[in-house]
Nucleic acid binder design. Structure first.
Lengths: 185, 185
DNA sequence: GAGCCAAAAGCAAAATAATTGCGTTACGCC
DNA sequence: GGCGTAACGCAATTATTTTGCTTTTGGCTC
């Protein structure tokens, strides 16, 4: 991986594309390293040497798919921005594919770096929202508070607790977090 | 697994014991299904048929090890009970073996039931603490509030965010949660 | 822009692991 | 005490993973 371009990059993209294609065509359960390799036009040993095993490869692909595609929408107010973002985040993560990506991202992650990238994605989005609000002169909570009080409960429930969650749960978390900012009255 | 006793139970215990022994002797990375089977005095196909693959077996063992061994200590006050429990919970989960069990428990969990058992363990402990406090006549938060505001942030950071956490972080979460109970002044 | 070095990929054989069909054992139940 | 069946053992088959060696090729220096 010390070589960012050329054949290495082509192989990486080809293998990732093969995983994505086979996931939709045959389902994740059907994936094997030899199968992915054949589809990518690569020998299995290439995958084993670069990714270690199937799980790490799937984790790599999953993290990529969890990366936000755009900065969070700007509605001109902290509360609205956070609510909208939290609802959308929850919806994406709680959807069947979202859950699958999250699971894969965690499962093939020997040192926690993949999981770290996932939380960094969320933290970046939160930072953007908070920075914009601060620029407007709004009083903003600390980013860690948002991660602890809004992101963590949603993801914890998603990963550890059975049962559904809906958008109102996300809104409630935002509400509770922001109301903590107001001086008591 | 529909047979709770007899040979089935002996095989299960023998396999679990083999996993635990080999984990300490050789390290988790060295484990394979045939190795575990040999140590347990069982044929590999037995393991494959009962657990599916190595990961599910390791997840099964890990969940077992995450089960609390005793109810939380009773110090006569909600705040102290929660603080003590949260500190100890964090310490156990953040330790290298704790992290490894947590990782294994999640990794070999196709349908989320193992993760569900983990959170149920924590929820049980919390329920005991809250019920005792309520019996004393103390004002107690909802169990879900405790899970969302205390357990979720710790586990989220543990699983997703790099870097250490110490006991004071756990205390701070308890503090913030309980102070939310007090009427504003 | 030619040549060199080393990282990454290909290839193929060998080792290891996973699957499966079939016979046997032994719970749980009547 | 005997029956039915779930779980296990065994062994052959199949698939995957590992590994040593060779070839390709990206990046760097001169």
């Amino acid at each position: 991986m010390t070589r960012p371009g050329g054949r290495s990059a082509r192989v990486q993209e080809s293998v990732h594309a093969a995983v994505r294609a086979l996931e939709t065509e045959q389902g994740r359960a059907a994936l094997t390293v030899p199968l992915v390799a054949a589809r990518a036009g690569v020998t299995p040993s290439t995958i084993y040497r670069r990714w270690g095993d199937l799980q790490e490869l799937l984790s790599d692909v999953a993290v990529e798919r969890l990366r936000p595609e755009a900065p969070p929408a700007d509605h001109g107010a902290l509360r609205t921005d956070l609510e909208t973002w939290a609802e959308q985040f929850l919806e994406e993560m709680a959807s069947p594919p979202g859950r699958a990506y999250l699971r894969d991202a965690l499962a093939g992650d020997p040192d926690g770096s993949h999981a770290g990238r996932c939380s960094a994605y969320a933290a970046e989005q939160v930072d953007v929202i908070l920075a914009r609000a601060a620029d407007r002169g709004e009083q903003v909570p600390d980013a860690d508070i948002v991660m602890d009080h809004i992101v963590a409960p949603m993801i914890y429930r998603l990963v550890f607790r059975p049962g559904p969650m809906d958008a109102s749960y996300a809104r409630g978390l935002v509400e509770a977090t922001l109301s903590g900012l107001m001086p008591p009255h």
